[in-house]
């Protein structure tokens, strides 16, 4: 059974790229285009990993991350924050509220896939 990954980002082109990459790597991909959608999608499809953009409409990535971490039954969900804001303060903020990784845009696609694979314990 393939692992499920949720992509939450308001930039359609970035979503398109990541979606293509993940699908090619054999993941089941779901997409959300804002914070609210993201939370709903987590509820609906119970992903193994969420790629969260920080600056999203309606609800920021930080907020979504916090909500996910508040739910005990979602404890297994891995979270990777994606952000164009790469300052140290933002990275540590993201990690402190429960993200597993913080990846700064623009990112290397190979790195990103490797990190995702690592988190989901796949070679």
């Amino acid at each position: 059974m393939s692992k499920k990954i949720l992509i939450a980002d308001d930039e359609p082109n970035i979503v398109a790229a990541v979606e293509f990459l993940l699908q090619r790597s054999g993941y089941e991909v779901h997409v959300a285009r804002n914070g609210d959608e993201a939370l709903k999608a987590v509820e609906d499809c119970n992903p193994d990993l969420v790629l969260l953009d920080v600056m999203m409409p309606l609800r920021s990535g930080y907020e979504v991350c916090k909500r996910i971490r508040e739910r005990a039954d979602w404890g297994h969900i891995k979270i990777i924050m994606l952000s164009a804001k790469g300052r140290d303060a933002e990275v540590s903020k993201g990690l402190s509220i429960g993200a597993d990784l913080y990846v700064t845009k623009p990112f290397s696609t190979r790195d990103l896939i490797a990190k995702i694979n690592g988190l989901l314990q796949r070679p």
């Binding site: 930039e11 082109n13 970035i14 398109a16 790229a17 990541v18 293509f20 990459l21 090619r24 600056m55 164009a84 804001k85 790469g86 300052r87 700064t104 845009k105 623009p106 990112f107 290397s108 696609t109 190979r110």
Partner: peptide
């Protein structure tokens, strides 16, 4: 500066991602 950086990185992200995809595959 922070905003400009953000605004610059966003299109760059797409460009880099797609370029790598095309390059690798």
């Amino acid at each position: 500066i922070s905003t400009v950086t953000h605004e610059l990185r966003t299109p760059l992200t797409s460009i880099r991602a797609f370029t790598e995809i095309l390059l690798d595959d």
